[in-house]
Design a protein around this nucleic acid. Structure first.
Lengths: 197, 197, 197, 197
DNA sequence: CCTTAAGCGAGACGGTACGTCAGGTCTTGGC
DNA sequence: GCCAAGACCTGACGTACCGTCTCGCTTAAGG
């Protein structure tokens, strides 16, 4: 018995790959995740359906990749470090709040979360490729704060990030309350009190 | 031209309603949210498709209702109040962690979240009918703690609940880390420190 | 295990059935058998593909049925019987030759033969529903001739029909020679000599 | 603009040509004409698809060629001539009947007829390359019979062959009756009576 | 003898059609 | 008048092949 035969990546058409990713991104923005079909992506990209099925295992994977490609530009990001942790975090959190208020981010980020909930493989990729690098940058800033004595030296940084961000994400996903700069500030203050040295 | 004519709820068949809800619940457990179809629910329930379309606007609504019906039994719940907030919360949080470890809860809760992310109307219903009563019970316990001086009197109780639960939910949904009793305890401790009087 | 579940013929839409048959006939005439697709038939008929698959097992069956429907009008046909077998047969054979010269008959009849060669079930249906009644009418005329002493009383009438028609059909299908009124006459003369009393 | 550039036959790979022809023959036997694809032929032959498209214009042409190649061995055949036309023809016709009963001939011959009906160019090739030589040999025997006074001197030999063979071919293609040695004999007798001197 | 252009295998590509599944609407007959 | 049943049109699924198009690689001809 033979396996489903893997395509040869060396022959892959970069032009098609980009066209698919672009089309996927556009369609998610226009229609929302649920209403995007692989047929529509293929048609918009001017690509045969088989070309999508050859390189991606599912609709979720295509759309996920289209986000991945987007964020690859902002690689190696790092957070501001003025020496004042609270001020720095508030800037970052307020920026996040602002981002979430931008309707252009709405559809893609909800799409991403819908996929991730139902597909462990995508969730793993998400953590590794998207959340991971960003979290690492944030933890770097927190370590700097630990060295400066602004944060408990033994604080579990993953936990710090969760306390800081999870309430914000949840409130946004569930639409269970307003996302205001004040809310961002409150989260920073609460977190710093919780993990004070 | 005539409107789509609303059905008369008085005539509604309770037997069919229950059969649909039961079938929906079973199928979500067996297949996961995405793979459940209205056709399959109707077939399993021994019900005409029209009967579903007559009474529910969408697949999400049916499935949501099937969860609602489940939780209506546990109405009027309240949290333990031994006078020791930390101990009481740890009991509750550890119970939550244990619940999330039960594979029978996996499919339905992920289904619920998938629906809620993409449908504001369902999200509102969720907050009102499911999360609301539970949160109110929790807040009642927190108010008791405020009166006992175990929690800052001016603490925003919604925020307290978010800091307590959102990290847990997010870690579970994203599968970004293990859910242990120790993790539950840590969240309680962090939250109490953050909102200490 | 359950069978593929048969549709209930009582609920069949006559409007759809007719539309499919008409579309099939038209498309075969326009494009030829090989280039007709079920998708195209469905589209032209304004019908869902499933409606075709529900009632017919294959493209061949649809197209065959579309011919069947056509010929049902000429049911109960009978051949001229002037008492002069040779003259009567020449009229009929010349008419057949003329029919084959009509380009509008070209595509459908070739289509029919293509199907029949490859599909025993269709071949059986063809013999029973299309060829059978026509052949019976012809044999009726031949029996009359036998009674009149113009044909050997013990002649195998199926064989007579084959000798009369098979050369004509083959010449036309293989395009191996011209179909002229003279050719029609020659076949009649040869056949009558072969089966003379 | 440049023409599609014709390949240089001198460079043609004989090994590939044979492999394609063999694969085509095998696949037609196994699957029947309709289910054979060019992809499958190429794969079975271990040949690139382009190699097929380079040398043959259509699936029909490949398969036709594969039959041609087969029959090239039996070139220059001739019929028995014992002086007794009836006996000689019965031997030949009974042999043909036997051939048609062999299931190994089933698929290829039906395939050949399917092609020929729909493609005038292939039909012409068929007459010239396959049917022609065989018919010529048969006509040679008939001419010998004419000289011996066993057949009308002015008989149209093409017509004789049609009367002799077309009923047999048609009965086989349409499966409209049994092919027995008696049937073969009957056809010979009828034909000889029809074209008696 | 060595280049060089052709044929070759492989297989990705943009497409069309396949046959299936489900969506949501509509109709029929039974209760 | 709701209900079970299920046919209908629609649209997407994932697959099979179409015929075209590169890729490197042999391989035979001609300079």
């Amino acid at each position: 018995m033979s396996q489903p035969r893997k395509p040869n990546p060396a022959r892959r058409s970069e032009r098609s790959r980009q066209a698919v990713l672009d089309a996927a991104r556009d369609l998610v923005s226009e229609l929302g995740y649920a209403k995007v079909s692989i047929e529509a992506i293929a048609a918009r990209a001017g690509v045969g359906k088989q070309t999508i099925y050859r390189w991606w295992p599912s609709k979720g994977a295509v759309i996920f990749d289209s986000f991945l490609a987007l964020s690859e530009s902002e690689e190696g990001m790092s957070l501001p470090d003025t020496g004042d942790l609270e001020a720095d975090l508030k800037i970052v959190m307020r920026a996040t709040v602002a981002e979430f208020a931008d309707p252009a981010f709405e559809a893609p980020i909800r799409a991403l979360n819908t996929e991730i909930i139902g597909d462990p493989a995508l969730a793993a990729q998400y953590r590794e490729k998207l959340a991971g690098p960003v979290d690492e940058a944030k933890k770097e800033r927190l370590r700097s704060a630990q060295r400066a004595g602004q944060l408990a030296a033994d604080a579990d940084l993953d936990l710090v990030l969760e306390v800081l961000y999870a309430p914000l994400y949840q409130r946004w996903l569930h639409r269970s309350g307003p996302l205001t700069p004040q809310y961002a500030d409150a989260l920073v203050e609460i977190t710093l009190r919780a993990f004070a040295p």
